[in-house]
Simulated scan of single mutants.
Amino acid sequence: MSIPTVDVVYTAVATAENGRDGRVASDDGKLDVVVNPPKEQGGSGAGTNPEQLFAAGYSACFQGALSVVARQEKQDVSGSRVTAKVGIGKTSEGAFGLTVEISASIPNVDAETARALVEKAHQVCPYSHATRGNIDVKLTVA
């Protein structure tokens, strides 16, 4: 499988200090957060963590993809919400791995249309492209 070329129109830049127990900041200063491992991983849980940041980015990106698909399909997704749950744990090989569950609530369409829109958004979303074949991503419609 070849990697498609990307005509980059924007590049986000963030730098981490002290890894999962430190600080992450964007080069423009709009993001500057303390990161700490969650209590479930033996950390203080005082700050955010990379999985929360990934879930925030994925849910926002997926919501954008859903809006694009809805416009193409002439469907109303106003009032919709997308939630991403990102899990981290050990793989069967002993490495660390991630799982993702994307849940979409789309109140202005029927369940069948909502499922179709979510499936199409999964084909459009850049995060979905990046994770496809690498992370188990489960899609649900709430």
Rank of each mutant, 00 (worst) to 15 (best):
1 M>Q: 10
2 S>V: 05
3 I>E: 09
4 P>H: 10
6 V>I: 15
7 D>V: 15
8 V>F: 14
10 Y>Q: 14
14 A>C: 09
14 A>S: 10
15 T>Q: 12
16 A>P: 07
18 N>K: 08
21 D>N: 11
22 G>W: 02
26 S>P: 04
28 D>G: 14
28 D>F: 14
29 G>R: 13
30 K>L: 15
30 K>Y: 14
30 K>E: 11
31 L>W: 11
31 L>V: 13
32 D>C: 07
32 D>W: 02
33 V>L: 13
39 K>V: 15
41 Q>E: 15
42 G>P: 07
42 G>H: 06
42 G>V: 03
45 G>T: 05
46 A>Q: 06
47 G>W: 05
47 G>A: 08
49 N>Y: 10
50 P>R: 09
53 L>M: 15
53 L>K: 01
56 A>G: 13
57 G>F: 04
58 Y>I: 05
60 A>V: 13
61 C>R: 01
61 C>E: 03
63 Q>C: 06
64 G>W: 02
64 G>H: 08
65 A>Y: 00
66 L>C: 10
67 S>G: 15
68 V>R: 02
68 V>D: 05
69 V>Y: 00
69 V>H: 01
70 A>R: 01
70 A>F: 00
71 R>E: 10
72 Q>F: 00
73 E>A: 08
73 E>P: 01
74 K>S: 06
75 Q>K: 13
76 D>T: 12
77 V>W: 02
78 S>K: 11
78 S>M: 05
79 G>W: 07
79 G>V: 10
80 S>A: 12
81 R>N: 03
81 R>G: 03
82 V>D: 02
82 V>R: 01
83 T>W: 03
86 V>Q: 12
86 V>A: 14
86 V>H: 06
87 G>P: 06
88 I>A: 12
89 G>C: 13
90 K>F: 11
90 K>N: 12
92 S>F: 02
94 G>W: 14
95 A>I: 12
96 F>L: 15
97 G>A: 13
98 L>S: 08
100 V>H: 08
100 V>W: 07
101 E>K: 04
102 I>D: 05
103 S>G: 05
106 I>N: 07
107 P>N: 01
108 N>P: 10
108 N>Y: 04
109 V>D: 08
110 D>F: 03
110 D>V: 04
111 A>Y: 01
111 A>R: 03
113 T>Q: 04
115 R>G: 04
115 R>V: 08
117 L>Y: 06
117 L>S: 02
118 V>R: 00
118 V>A: 01
119 E>P: 04
119 E>W: 01
119 E>A: 09
120 K>S: 10
120 K>Y: 08
121 A>W: 00
121 A>V: 00
123 Q>G: 13
123 Q>I: 10
123 Q>L: 10
124 V>R: 00
125 C>F: 01
126 P>N: 07
126 P>I: 09
127 Y>T: 05
128 S>L: 09
129 H>W: 00
130 A>G: 09
131 T>P: 04
131 T>H: 06
133 G>L: 13
137 V>W: 00
139 L>Y: 02
139 L>I: 10
141 V>L: 07
141 V>T: 04
142 A>G: 09
